[in-house]
């Protein structure tokens, strides 16, 4: 092609140049992921990758801080000083997880205020499990054991996900979650070995939290929309159904060990599969809660909105004060 010809078709050439450049950026990006190298905030990434990560990381961050509420419900009523301290520390850990995850999300070019806005308006989701009420002390055991337990199964694979800041946040988070799980199991063990009232309390909590915990691992593969893309980006390593099976296989022997009964009459070991078979999950209930009609959806969201709105004057004060101090420093310097 002569120079003249290029000039004549200038716009077209620029457009295809740009397409070419994007293609090569995309190739570099994909090769990087294939080589198991991390994508860092400064690296080019496809818009869809950025958006998907904002959605997933923020959803995770929101789950951590909404998740503080059901357990926070029992801090003032914890049955002993030792348990009170442990529960306070646990709920505080969840706040810390929220903090790491919001920070990781902010590296994708969105602010914490925007993320909160999405949560408060219902645009962003959080884990549906936190829309169930905590009605007894045993729920603190069941949540640690089952909910933190299911969270770990979901999250351990994310420690090697492709987006660097997310992967690093998950390494810290997972360490603490497994501590939470052990602590929850220890609460349950103590109750299961306690008086008849305590044992009944533990069994009742298991009955209420078992099925929602299974749902926490996500819809069945047939109904899960994001799986293929997520596998490629290492946001997922196993399918929801595989993770659920792993959770069940891991948890059933633990229940047996402390003499509690999993509330599923169809649950039995399948020698051929090398896994437990289990009963049908009530997916109608799952979608009901996801859509906002769980027992505590309204309370959880309004608790978050209240904390944020009532805290506004405090945040404003901190900002105004910091600005005044900055001004004073400047004046001194002059």
């Amino acid at each position: 092609m002569s120079k003249k010809e290029i000039k004549n078709t200038g716009t077209e050439a620029t457009r295809s140049d740009r397409a070419e450049a994007t293609r090569s950026l995309e190739e570099i990006f994909e090769q990087r992921i294939a080589r198991d190298e991390k994508i860092e905030p400064k690296n080019w990434m496809p818009e869809k990758y950025r958006k998907t990560h904002i959605r997933q990381i923020s959803q995770h961050a929101h789950s951590e801080i909404v998740g503080m509420l059901p357990e926070g419900n029992w801090i003032t009523r914890a049955p002993s000083l030792r348990r009170k301290v442990a529960l306070l520390a646990k709920v505080q850990d969840e706040a810390g997880h929220g903090l790491y995850l919001y920070s990781a999300c902010e590296t994708l070019g969105i602010t914490r205020e925007e993320l909160y806005e999405q949560l408060h308006t219902g645009k962003a989701k959080y884990s549906s499990i936190f829309n169930y009420p905590t009605t007894t002390w045993a729920d603190m055991g069941a949540i640690g054991w089952l909910v933190d337990g299911a969270a770990i199964i979901n999250q351990v694979p994310l420690c090697s996900t492709s987006y660097g800041p997310y992967a690093r946040a998950m390494i810290r988070v997972c360490k603490e979650e497994s501590f939470h799980q052990r602590q929850g199991f220890e609460i349950m063990t103590k109750l299961a070995q306690g008086t008849p009232e305590q044992k009944a309390m533990a069994q009742d909590a298991l009955n209420r939290w078992w099925w929602p915990s299974l749902m926490m691992l996500g819809p069945t593969d047939a109904e899960s929309v994001h799986t293929e893309q997520s596998m490629k980006w290492k946001l997922k390593r196993k399918t929801n159904d595989e993770l659920r099976q792993q959770f069940i296989d891991q948890t059933v022997p633990q229940a047996d060990l402390i003499g509690l009964t999993i509330p599923d009459p169809d649950l039995k070991w399948n020698d051929e599969r090398g896994h437990y078979d289990f009963g049908a999950i009530n997916w109608d209930e799952f979608w009901q809660v996801v859509k906002g009609h769980g027992p505590c959806n309204k309370e959880r969201l309004s608790a978050r909105v209240n904390a944020w709105e009532e805290g506004e004057w405090v945040r404003d004060a901190a900002m105004a004060y910091a600005e005044k101090q900055e001004d004073k420093k400047l004046k001194k310097a002059i």
Partner: peptide, 18 residues
Amino acid sequence: SELCGHGPNLETDIALTN
């Protein structure tokens, strides 16, 4: 401890719990 989870932002929530 009544305030845990209800602070004006995460940083102060964590600090008061501490």
